[in-house]
Structures are given as structure tokens and as C-alpha cells.
Design a protein around this nucleic acid. Structure first.
Lengths: 373, 373
DNA sequence: CTGTTAGCGCCTTCAC
DNA sequence: GTGAAGGCGCTAACAG
């Protein structure tokens, strides 16, 4: 039973290395005023005794909390199969670890609670900045953060503010690559089963599909929003297949819905990709676990997280905010996409389900995601 | 563009409510020495200005960091489909939020890095306690934590120390329910495709199967360890199916491998559950996404996390360490288990693959998990 | 109840 | 290079 040690302080190091406390402080913080030999000795002693600056003391003397925050606003029941998130965080940590920054992680029920969390963190002096996930179309969070003076980077957002950067995925480019693939195969009737309606990237993908469809003359292309669950993915698919003129290809905003879509098609006795082509906007083991294997957009969540953390670190260093892009996801063509069996029927004005259909208006393509280095 | 506010301090509250700073401190911390009317007034003012105690200052004056830590030691590539983890954390947060405790989350490559993390956190005064996940059989972490005097609770462990509690799943009971189900269906040749060899709960499940098999007289029951991946799940299944006398039922330690097992059986032209029964030791949407739907053990990760956090909070309050149990997981019998087609062949000593086979020795069943309230 | 004082560990400044 | 002093926001232990 080893004895519980006392935390080493600068005073201890000063004593053991035979110099003054201020010299230690200078040495450890890489400041001028000490000889390199003393600096080295002090550093060695500090490492020997396992000294690390107390973040509490540092924060108190105005240095910041050496911590960044990340809150995930998602009800517990929607935390099911989620391959993206832990990988994103893993990427974030790769960068934070080098800077000795900690990550304060919180999951809450909704965005209101998330904003409250930011206020608390700020008042408690807990974080120096935050990573914003799931940016929304009318998002209250940037305003809150700005009023608190908390730097932030929006992961997958485009909105930028004085101290808010955005790390943006090129959804327009990705959509182009998907639609282009399907179009080349002969598909003219494509439906996009999207994710949550309020999310910025959902809106962006919807707008991108609309733009892409306009460019290629695919009047029946449209987007339907869901809650990302397998249940809604399946339900939406069944509804589509029951239409008078069902689509020949469906793009799903995540892997879970895509897999559910395959199952729904099978229920109806339809084969994939013979009767229906399917694309998943997310690659994961799931995509290689269903039959046929799913054609999928492979993003790199780890790199995404890394980029976001790097940008936040820059912001913390005082750099101005900006928008940075992540590499275009790669379209992995597997087995779930092929040429449609029959030529698509002429687009007569069949009954199109009315609610939850986005894409009727023909606004300008205001949303091609910037992609600067 | 709202102006960035200054953090309100106790001094501000004292000024605005017309009392002394110490009175404010007493009032806010629920200490005697102030009248209830003053206390109420002070509290109201504090809330108005959005005051919250600076955790930095609190930590510095010896109150602890109001933060608990959780590090996940797992290489980035193994962070794929993971339904358990985020739900666990979500449960943890439900408890921490009430206590105004933050969660410092870190993902690292291995246990060595994890131990280093604990030392850093301790030296930096960052956390008051930690949640230990994936306990191992010869685990260096409890020793490190004890030497640092950091309270902890091991999630899914059984080892307990002066300031280390365990929240333990009743793997033995769960194994009994699974084997009992399969045995009743007529299965006599059952294989357990387990997870990572070093993990405590893997060892526990292996021991439990051995004990259960001893009790029921199933000499061919055995466990094979894997890395939890779909790839190894599939490979192990193929290997089993290629044996002279393949098992009639397989228990997989997670959903991903179980689903991969179904696919592997299909490759061989075998039907589930006709030719092979399959059980997943983890329920998730994946289990209802493959055909047939998988019989699965449904644990409650959220409750698990809640229990662990509660126990850690108790420890922080000074209570002695102990072992607490979580409810026995429920076996959801779905479509992937049925009576074996043919009676099992008499167990002649066919060639059993040698490496990675656990369960040959017949040690005592030392591992029935305690399950106190 | 009030007001004062000291101290937590660190950084900074200003003599020396 | 040294040493002393002040401050960050809070708690705790005083004397009034």
C-alpha cells in the first residue's frame, strides 16, 4: 500500500534544485533570465518529482483553465449506434494532448441546456473555449458564446464570428460526387433521406441536392428529413417504395438509415441494387455488414476532430477566426449501386407525399461550402 | 454584438446585496451564521448576476476540482461502432449534473498512457476521482490510483480497494440465462466467441461458461478470445464452422461480432437459426438490422453509468468503498435461436483448434460476481 | 451577524 | 541570477 504523496509544488523544486522559486518559474516557462544549464537542471528535477503546474492556480492567476469544452445535445435514446462521435473526439484529443489541454465533455438533452452549460462553464472559470457540434440553421449558441467571450469552433458549420471559426465539410462537393455517380449509372429519380431538419449540414445537403438536380435536370429529386433512426429510415423507405413512381436510388444521411433502407426494400421483395440503389452518407462497419455491401461516403472523423481542435488552439493563441475545410469525403463504390433495371418512367405528376418534403422552392444555390485550407 | 461581461465574484454580490463577503460565502454554501432572509436575498442576487463559484479558486483553497475523469484506452481504429459507451457516459452525466461535477474525458492509446494521464491529472489538480473502464485481469491502474490517493470506481470490475469501488455486472448470472436458454432448446455444443483476452469481464465470462458447462455436462463448451472486431468475429465463426463437429450455437461478446457471425454462416450456406443459433451479448439497433433478428442480452448502459457515478459521488463524500451490482441483463429471445436441426453428434475427440482456446483447465468457479445493492 | 486576515499555487513585477 | 510582495477568487478562522 504505497503512501499517498503530496503534490509537488514549485517551492519543492526550488529547494531540491537549489535555486529560487522565481528562477524555477522562469525556467519552467521558458522565459529569459536563467542560464540554460540551470533551466535544464530545473526541468530535470521537475520531471523527476512529477511536477505539473496546478491548473487551478494557473487559472486563478489569469492563464486560462487549460481546458476546452464539448457538449453534445442529444437525448439519451438517440445515442445508439454512433460511429462518428468517438472518432471525432479521438482526433480532437490527439491535438489537445500535445498542448496539455483537457477536454470537458458533457451530454445534455437539448440546445437550451447546452447554452446554460456554456454560461456555467464560463462563470465557473472551467473552459477557455468550446467545440460546437451539430450546428443548426437558426442557432442560438454562437450568440451566447460571443456574449461570453468564449472562443469556439463550429464543427461542420459555415457561420463565422469574431471568435468563432468553422470547420466545414464540403457537403456540396460530396453531393455532387454522389449524384454524379448515380446519374452516370442512369438514375434520374433520386431521393435524399436526410437527417434532422434543424441541422445546418442537413439544410446544406438539401440545398446541394436541389442545386445539383437543377444543374442536371432531375425535377423529381427531393429530400425528406428524419431523426436519423433506423425506424424512420425504414419507414421513409417504405413510403417511397409505395409511391406510384418510386425512386430508383436513395441517398441516406447516415449508415443506420441506409442499412434500414436495405431491409425495408427486402421486405417489399425488391433487390438492391437491382430494383433500388442505395448510398450511405457515412461509412462504418455497418456498411460492410449488410448485403449487399453499401456504397458509402467515407469521411475521416478523426481528421475532422483534429482539424477542429487545431483551429481552436489557434483561436486560443489569439489568431483571428476563419473557415477551414476538411478533405472531400471519398465515395466508396461497393455493391449497393448499379444501373436501374428499367428506364425511369416519364415523370408524370404522380402523388408526391406532401409533408416533410423539402426542396420545392427554388432558391439560389447559396450554400456551396467554402473549402479553404 | 453583446459586450463581453466580467465574471461576477463574491465581492460583487456582497456589494450588491449590502453584506460582507464572508456572509455571502456562508449564505451561498448553506452554512449557519446568516439569517434565512439574508441567505435568500444573497442567493437571489447571486442568481441574478449569474454568479457561480470559480472552480479554480475553489480547487486552490482545497475544495477539490469538482471534476471527475474518465479515460478510454483504445486505439483510434477500434472506436468504430460503439453503442455502449456514449450511453454509459450519458448515464454518468445524469448524476454528475446534479452535483455540479464536470467530466474530463480523454481517449488514449493504451493503459500505460492511461496511467500517465492519472498522474498528470493528479499533479495538475484537475480531478477529484476517476471512473475506470475496461478493468483488466492484471491491472496496473488500481495501484496507480491508490498511490495517488485518487478515489475511483471500476465499471464492470470486481476488485475493490480502500478508495476503489466496483460496479459489477453479474456476468455469471447472465451466462447462466443464456446457456440455460440454449440448453433448453437442445443445444449441447456451445461456443463462446469472447472479447479481448486481458479484460476482466472477458475472463469472468469465460470462467462462467466453464462453470456452467461443468454443471450441465457440456464438455465441448469453450471460449475463444478476439479483439471485438467484425473481422475477427467473422473469422472465428468460419473457423468454427469448418471444424469436423461444428458447434450448434455461438455466443458472441458483442453485437458487431454476432452480426458478422450471421454473415459468415450465410457465406457457408448455413441458415440461422436452423443450422446455427446465435446470441449477442449486447443489444443494439444492429441486432434488429440483420436477418434474422438477433437474440440478445439487453444491458442498460445508461443505468450502468448512473450507478457508477453515484458510487463515485459517495466515495467523494467519504463513504467507504464497496461493490455494487447492476440489474441482471434481460435475455431478449428473438429469431436467431432455435432448436438445433439434428441431435448433436456424440462428442468424439475431434480436432479442436489449439491456440487461443480458453477453458481447458478446470479451476474453481472463483468468479460468481457479487451483486449487493 | 460583520470585518479582517491568512492561505491555497502560481505568475509577475520590482528591487537587489 | 535572488528575494519579497501583490494578486487571482475563494474558504476558513479569527476578533469584533
Amino acid at each position: 500500500m504505497p503512501a499517498q504523496r503530496r503534490r509537488p509544488t514549485i517551492k519543492d523544486i526550488a529547494r531540491r534544485s537549489g535555486v529560487s522559486e522565481s528562477a524555477v518559474s522562469f525556467a519552467l516557462n521558458g522565459r529569459p533570465g536563467v542560464s540554460e544549464t540551470t533551466r535544464a537542471r530545473v526541468r530535470r528535477v521537475a520531471e523527476q518529482v512529477g511536477w505539473r503546474p496546478s491548473t487551478a492556480a494557473r487559472a486563478l492567476s489569469g492563464e486560462g483553465a487549460a481546458t476546452i469544452g464539448l457538449v453534445l445535445a442529444r437525448p439519451a435514446r438517440m445515442l445508439g449506434v454512433e460511429s462518428f462521435f468517438l472518432q471525432l473526439i479521438s482526433g480532437v484529443q490527439q491535438v489537445l494532448a500535445q498542448r496539455r489541454l483537457g477536454l470537458l465533455f458533457q451530454v445534455v438533452e437539448d440546445v437550451t441546456a447546452e447554452c446554460a452549460m456554456y454560461r456555467h462553464w464560463w462563470a465557473e472559470h472551467r473552459v477557455d473555449g468550446v467545440l460546437l457540434v451539430d450546428p443548426r440553421s437558426a442557432d442560438p449558441r454562437p450568440g451566447v458564446l460571443e456574449s461570453l467571450g468564449l472562443p469556439a469552433v463550429a464543427i461542420g458549420g459555415t457561420e463565422t464570428r469574431p471568435r468563432l471559426s468553422a470547420v466545414s465539410a464540403d457537403d456540396a462537393g460530396a453531393m455532387t460526387s454522389v449524384v454524379s455517380h448515380l446519374h452516370a449509372l442512369g438514375h434520374r429519380d433520386i431521393v435524399h433521406v436526410a437527417g434532422l431538419a434543424g441541422l445546418a449540414h442537413t439544410e446544406r445537403r438539401i440545398a446541394s441536392l436541389r442545386a445539383e438536380a437543377g444543374r442536371r435536370g432531375l425535377p423529381r429529386a427531393r429530400s425528406l428529413t428524419t431523426d436519423y433512426s433506423d425506424a424512420e429510415g425504414a419507414a421513409m423507405t417504405r413510403r417511397l417504395l409505395d409511391e406510384d413512381a418510386p425512386p430508383t436510388a436513395v441517398i441516406y444521411d447516415n449508415d443506420v438509415m441506409a442499412a434500414a433502407g436495405v431491409a425495408a426494400a427486402a421486405e417489399r421483395g425488391l433487390s438492391v441494387p437491382g430494383d433500388l440503389s442505395i448510398v450511405s452518407w457515412e461509412d462504418s462497419v455497418l456498411c460492410r455488414m449488410v448485403h449487399p455491401w453499401l456504397t458509402a461516403l467515407a469521411r475521416d472523423p478523426v481528421a475532422f476532430g483534429r482539424g477542429a481542435a487545431q483551429e481552436l488552439a489557434r483561436l486560443l493563441d489569439g489568431s483571428p477566426s476563419r473557415t477551414v475545410g476538411v478533405p472531400l469525403p471519398e465515395l466508396l463504390v461497393r455493391e449497393s449501386t448499379a444501373a436501374p433495371k428499367s428506364r425511369p418512367v416519364p415523370p408524370r405528376p404522380g402523388r408526391v407525399s406532401s409533408d416533410r418534403v423539402a426542396g420545392a422552392s427554388s432558391g439560389p444555390d447559396s450554400d456551396s461550402a467554402p473549402d479553404s485550407a
